Computed example of a mutant assay.
Amino acid sequence: MDLDGRVCVVTGAASGIGEEIARQFGARGAAVAIIDVRAETAEQVAEQITEKGPGSAAGFSCDLRSVQEIEAALAAINARYGRLDVVVNVAGLANRTPVEDITEAEWDLLNDVNLKAPFFVAQQAYRVMVTQRSGKIINIASHRAHTTDGNHLIYAATKAGLQAVTRDLAVAGGRYGIEVNTVSPGYVLTPMTEHNLQNEEWLSHMTSRIPLGRLLEMREVANAVLFLAAPTTSGITGQNLLVDGGWTVHE
């Protein structure tokens, strides 16, 4: 297996894209650490990954709004496995609040989860990877960092910021063999977005806007992450890989 024995950390992996990435890591032989605020669900996913094999998984409870909890979770993972090979920041929140109605509380919440948390997770991993002289950090951003419809101001701002964080970490970590990249999905069909399929007007607009003519699947985002995470993939750092069905190149 191409990730056999590698220690892979995934935030927000109790459901959705994060869960799919964690399952794909496990299917390729990795030891997967699932970080999520939903401790019971994280443990259930971890048990399923371990049962299926050939890799294994364990859940680690963490409220990503707390730097102290992030530090504790990463320390526990490092203590358990003795190294960190791949860290994927998936956990995030979206918003569709009109500009005139955005509150300070909403602004702070999305910045805490979408931007501050990925940085401090990456920082903890970075410190371990500096000692190892190797490691890969992959941040999940969004095509909304590049385009907007006027309804995702905070989300777009945090995802653009996450790409900037990625570039800085890539430059700082290069001398230590640390590769840092971003994967930016477009509209992905997840358990949380499936209800949109019932809205024919919305679905028609989406499929006409996306050159591939369909929403993306979670496995397609996971495949992009797997590509960057693979030990055989090297020399790529500070880059952003768009998995958006062609959305951002469509006029």
Results as ranks from 00 to 15, higher is better:
215 L>S: 06
79 A>K: 15
162 L>D: 02
122 A>E: 02
182 T>L: 04
70 I>F: 01
225 V>E: 02
147 T>L: 13
72 A>Q: 03
181 N>E: 05
162 L>N: 08
71 E>F: 06
112 D>W: 11
27 A>C: 03
44 Q>M: 00
95 N>D: 15
175 R>E: 13
178 I>H: 10
178 I>F: 14
169 L>R: 09
202 W>L: 15
76 A>L: 00
52 K>E: 01
229 A>E: 00
22 A>F: 03
3 L>D: 11
200 E>D: 11
75 A>I: 00
216 L>F: 09
39 A>F: 00
13 A>Y: 05
223 N>L: 08
6 R>F: 14
153 L>P: 02
183 V>R: 10
110 L>G: 06
29 G>L: 06
31 A>Q: 08
55 G>E: 01
81 Y>D: 01
164 A>Q: 07
84 L>E: 02
61 S>G: 09
115 L>H: 10
246 G>M: 03
4 D>R: 15
57 A>I: 00
181 N>Y: 08
121 V>R: 12
152 H>D: 09
3 L>V: 11
19 E>V: 02
63 D>L: 04
134 S>Y: 15
221 V>R: 03
97 T>L: 13
87 V>K: 03
54 P>V: 07
88 V>F: 13
231 P>E: 05
128 V>R: 10
208 S>P: 08
81 Y>N: 01
76 A>N: 07
96 R>C: 09
129 M>W: 10
107 W>H: 09
132 Q>T: 09
37 V>P: 00
231 P>I: 07
39 A>Q: 00
220 E>I: 03
160 A>R: 10
166 T>R: 07
250 H>Y: 06
115 L>F: 12
183 V>Y: 05
133 R>W: 12
192 M>G: 14
